[in-house]
C-alpha cells in the first residue's frame, strides 16, 4: 500500500491511496462519519430568554455549533468513571452565554460563549445564534459532551468524507485526429490541447463523467475513460473540531479496537 498526500491542512486533506481495496476505504469512511467522537452541546439550561426565538429553537442552534475537541482529556459519558447523569470535569464542559442588547439590535455570536475550559471553544467566532432587539436578554448555561455522529449529526467530526477510484484517461494517438471535441467537453479542464497533441493533466480532478468519451467523433473512440479499482482518492473535510489528520488516526484506532475486540470474542476454543 502506498499513500501520497495530495493536499493537507488542519481542516481538509486529500490522499491518493494505491494498492488497497474498496471495503477498507468504505469502512474508514463510515467510521469517520459516524464513530469518531467530537464535542457538542447536548444540554442547555435556559435561565432567561426574552429573544424572538423559542427556547427549543435556540437550544437546537447552539447544539449545532462545532466545538474544538480535546480527545485526550475528555471521556465519552458512557465510558467515564463518574457514572453520573450530569457528568464530571472529565466528561462535560460548561459554556455560559450571558448577553443583553442595551439600546441597539445586536447579533449573538458563538464568540459570546464563555467556556469553562479555554481549549473547548467554538471553531469560529462568527457563527450567529440569534438577533436581540433592544432590552432583550439571554442567559443560559450549555453543557457540551463527547458523542458520536451515529447518535446525532451535531457530533459528526466531518462535513464531508468521500472516496473515489483513481481515474485513468487515455488518448489513443493512432485513432485521434486532434479535433479537440473532448477538450471542449471536459468541464474539469483535464484534457488540454497543445499544438496538435491532446494532453492530460490534473487527473485527480476527474469525476469520470464520460463526457470526453461521448464527445469523441471517432469509431472506435480515441478517448478511453476508466478507473483503477485498487487506487483511491480519499478526501476528508473536518468541521474544525479535530484536525483532518487526527480524524483519520482516530478512525484507524476505532477500527483496530473493533477487530481486537472481535478476535477476543470469537468462539475459536470451543471447536
Amino acid at each position: 500500500m502506498k499513500i501520497q498526500i495530495l493536499e493537507k491542512n488542519d481542516i481538509s486533506m486529500r490522499l491518493l491511496i494505491e494498492g488497497t481495496n474498496a471495503p477498507l476505504m468504505n469502512t474508514l469512511r463510515r467510521i469517520i462519519l459516524s464513530e469518531v467522537p467530537t464535542m457538542a452541546v447536548d444540554d442547555v439550561v435556559i435561565l432567561e430568554n426574552s429573544s424572538a426565538l423559542q427556547d427549543e429553537f435556540l437550544a437546537h442552534r447552539i447544539g449545532l455549533v462545532p466545538l474544538k475537541t480535546d480527545l485526550d482529556t475528555y471521556n465519552l459519558p458512557e465510558n467515564c468513571e463518574c457514572k453520573s447523569e450530569f457528568g464530571c470535569n472529565l466528561c462535560r464542559v460548561s459554556l455560559v452565554l450571558d448577553v443583553e442588547a442595551e439600546d441597539h439590535t445586536i447579533v449573538v455570536r458563538s464568540s459570546d460563549f464563555k467556556s469553562e475550559n479555554p481549549t473547548v471553544i467554538p471553531v469560529s467566532n462568527e457563527i450567529s445564534l440569534v438577533k436581540l432587539a433592544p432590552e432583550q436578554k439571554i442567559r443560559l448555561e450549555a453543557y457540551a459532551r463527547l458523542g458520536k455522529g451515529k447518535d446525532h449529526a451535531r457530533w459528526q467530526s466531518v462535513s464531508m468524507c468521500t472516496y473515489k477510484y483513481k481515474p485513468i484517461i487515455s488518448v489513443n494517438t493512432e485513432l485521434c485526429n486532434s479535433c479537440g471535441e473532448c477538450v471542449e467537453a471536459c468541464s474539469r479542464n483535464i484534457i488540454t490541447k497543445t499544438g496538435k497533441k491532446i494532453e492530460i493533466r490534473n487527473l485527480e480532478n476527474c469525476t469520470l463523467c464520460q463526457d470526453c468519451v461521448k464527445a469523441c467523433q471517432e469509431t472506435p473512440k480515441a478517448v478511453k475513460s476508466s478507473w483503477d479499482e485498487t487506487s483511491f482518492i480519499f478526501a476528508i473535510e473536518s468541521t474544525g473540531a479535530l484536525t483532518s489528520e487526527r480524524i483519520l488516526r482516530e478512525a484507524l484506532n476505532i477500527l483496530d479496537g473493533k477487530l481486537v475486540e472481535f478476535l477476543k470474542q470469537l468462539p475459536v476454543k470451543k471447536t
Partner: peptide
Amino acid sequence: PTKVLDDATKAVHKDSKTFRAAFSKALKEW
C-alpha cells in the same frame, strides 16, 4: 469456519496496520 473467520479478521487488521504505516510515511514526506 472459526479458523477462517479468525484469519479474515487478522487480514483486515493487517491491512489497517499497513494503512497506518503508509500514512505515517506519507506525512513525513509531506
